[in-house]
């Protein structure tokens, strides 16, 4: 790698990241044995559970001792430690370029976090992939764990600009065939999309056993509307214009946002998906706590 400094990863971040561990609890599917637990049968001797035999299972895995006691066929499964795959979905729609009360745009915030996460994953010899999307997938970087791969990701993040409208659901649908192995899905977005649609698109991933983290990013002004007089609001994505007095709609806006978040949270909980909100004024390192 010829480049030694990147916009979205700084030396102090690297120092701090050295104290973090990613994917301790995550169950991964990979080729590197010993580090992460895997539900694939392998060389591991770590007992997992008993499972009733179903046609097609390997008869060699049947625990005959249990058969002797219970007269039923059970398989004894072991957890296999393997290397982890982390798939980062970075929303780069125009709305992510919004910045008012926060120090940086949401996209910059997300890029900082994505860069750090990528470094962390690669530093642990795990594999990381990156999907930059708006209404479609703009860039897809297949999973990799090399320094060169990390350099490509960081460079892509640096060159990334806010684009068109958001369609997370569509992007998830399109990315599904591209991701071969299950792993951890980290989605960084402002989620200005219908919650039901998002989770509908996530279902295939969940079905395949992906662990999903939804990181919902906000500028503080989006939580309560900016303190302004009569203003013409121009939509960053659609260019749509609307003249309102924010003060008169603040409560309704808060209420609407609350409902939107509740809806996302409820759906996430029902599917055992991790859902976290963060403000661009907060440190992105707190998000690693959620991922740990």
């Amino acid at each position: 790698m010829s480049k030694t400094s990147y916009k979205y990863i700084r030396p102090e971040d690297i120092r701090r990241l050295s104290h973090y561990e990613f994917g301790v609890k995550a169950l991964v599917e990979g080729y590197l044995s010993g580090r992460h637990r895997s539900k694939e049968r392998g060389a591991s001797i770590e007992f997992s559970e008993y499972r009733q035999y179903t046609p097609g299972d390997d008869p060699a895995l049947v625990d005959w001792r249990v058969f002797a006691r219970t007269d039923r066929h059970y398989l004894k499964t072991f957890e296999q430690e393997t290397n982890m795959e982390c798939h980062i979905f970075l929303d780069s729609s125009a709305s992510m370029g919004f910045q008012d009360e926060g120090p940086i745009t949401k996209l910059e915030y997300a890029s900082f976090f994505a860069a750090c996460l990528s470094w962390l994953v690669v530093s642990k010899n795990d594999r990381v992939s990156l999907q930059i999307f708006d209404d479609k997938i703009r860039h897809f970087f297949s999973p990799g764990s090399t320094r060169r791969h990390l350099h490509q990701l960081l460079t892509a993040l640096e060159n990334n600009e806010p684009g068109n409208e958001t369609s997370l659901a569509e992007s998830l649908k399109r990315a599904h065939p591209l991701i071969k192995r299950k792993g951890t899905l980290v989605i960084l977005s402002d989620f200005f999309d219908e919650p039901e649609e998002i989770f509908k698109a996530l279902n295939p991933y969940l079905h395949r056993g992906f662990r999903v983290h939804l990181l919902h990013l906000f500028d503080p002004a989006e939580m309560k509307l900016p303190d302004r007089g009569l203003t013409r609001f121009v939509d960053l994505e659609t260019g749509d214009q609307l003249t309102i007095h924010p003060e008169s709609l603040r409560e309704a806006w808060k209420n609407e946002m609350r409902q939107h978040l509740q809806s996302l949270r409820r759906l996430a909980a029902s599917r055992q998906v991790d859902y976290t909100t963060t403000l661009t004024t907060e440190s992105w390192f707190k998000l690693f706590d959620r991922l740990a």
């Binding site: 200005f192 900016p226 302004r228 013409r232 609001f233 121009v234 939509d235 749509d240 806006w253 609407e256």
Partner: peptide, 13 residues
């Protein structure tokens, strides 16, 4: 009135 570029006006609508 003054213009203000906002992330999303769909909710406002």
């Amino acid at each position: 009135p003054p213009q203000y570029h906002f992330s999303n006006t769909a909710f406002l609508h």
